[in-house]
Write a protein that binds this DNA or RNA. Structure first.
Length: 270
DNA sequence: ACTGGCACCTGGGCGC
DNA sequence: TGCGCCCAGGTGCCAG
């Protein structure tokens, strides 16, 4: 899926077209997402105005006066602005038709995403136990170090755990660990406070760079305006197994960790 | 409390 | 061209 930079890129792409817009109606073609789209989503949204589009972790939050539509893009989801009469293709599951004549179209071939309604979104079970935002000030090396006390899990799945910190997916976890010079299989509890500082900084840096580039181009992803992201060519290790490390020329290694493929330089990362 | 493993689902790429 | 296999950006849930 879209990782955090892709979700943030999508949010920025759609926000100008959606904020302050009144919803005409919601068309649900297939409600079988990870959880069923609520049967009354149209009743909740029709006639209300979307005041703001926020992001929390990888969720997009469409805020209205009466509640919030939660959207998650899963592994293969995308959202974009279209003309309301544009014909729907396969996997275009939901349209939110706007007073402007445009529509917000949600597409998700694998249907791992979701579209829900909550009156108090931050208290929703899916959101309430999430860790800090990686780009916020309350996320730093000291926080990571404290949370890692006594943890035996490898550092890579540790930073991918949304309960620890949100928004670090499989691509950027590998990239951040390369940036910090930490081996992905090192136990979280055995990373020094000093190196946790490097790691927190590397997570922030890689996410910010990716957002600036408009996200990483992947099979299904494009931003709200339909333009692909350009970060992929800047990746240091992800999907670069066997190719030379950009720092030391050693061939990049691949290993499976927590059922996810992981990439690293065995010379630069310890 | 923590950990690892499985599940959900579709499609693309590969080797034969 | 077709078939079977493996892999893919996430994350909730389960048993141990």
């Amino acid at each position: 899926m879209p990782e955090l930079p892709e979700v943030e890129t999508s949010r920025r792409g759609i926000a100008p077209w959606v904020e302050k817009q009144t919803v005409k109606t919601v068309v649900v073609r297939d409600r079988r997402l990870r959880w069923p789209v609520p049967a009354d989503i149209d009743r909740k949204l029709a006639g209300t105005t979307i005041d703001r589009v926020h992001r929390r972790a990888k969720y997009l939050l469409f805020e209205t006066a009466s509640g919030t539509m939660l959207m998650h893009l899963g592994m293969s989801g995308s959202v974009r602005i279209i003309e309301a009469d544009e014909p729907a293709m396969k996997h275009d599951h939901v349209d939110v038709l706007l007073a402007s004549g445009k529509a917000l179209r949600f597409r998700d071939p694998r249907r791992f995403g979701c579209l829900l309604w909550a009156e108090e979104p931050l208290e929703h079970p899916l959101l309430r136990d999430l860790g800090p935002e990686p780009l916020a000030d309350d996320f730093d090396g000291d926080y990571l170090w404290r949370r890692a006390r006594g943890r035996k899990v490898s550092i890579k799945p540790f930073i991918m755990n949304a309960n620890i910190v949100v928004g670090v997916g499989n691509i950027y976890a590998s990239e951040a660990l390369f940036g910090a010079g930490i081996h992905p299989r090192r136990q979280a509890g055995r990373v020094s406070a000093e190196r946790m500082n490097l790691l927190a900084d590397a997570i922030k840096a890689v996410l910010q760079r990716a957002i600036r580039a408009g996200g990483t181009t992947l099979r299904d992803f494009s931003g709200g305006d339909g333009e692909p992201g350009y970060f992929r060519q800047q990746l240091d290790v992800y999907e670069r197994a066997g190719r030379p490390c950009r720092r030391c020329e050693t061939p990049i290694s691949a290993v499976v960790l927590g059922q996810r493929s992981s990439y690293y330089c065995k010379r630069c990362q310890r």
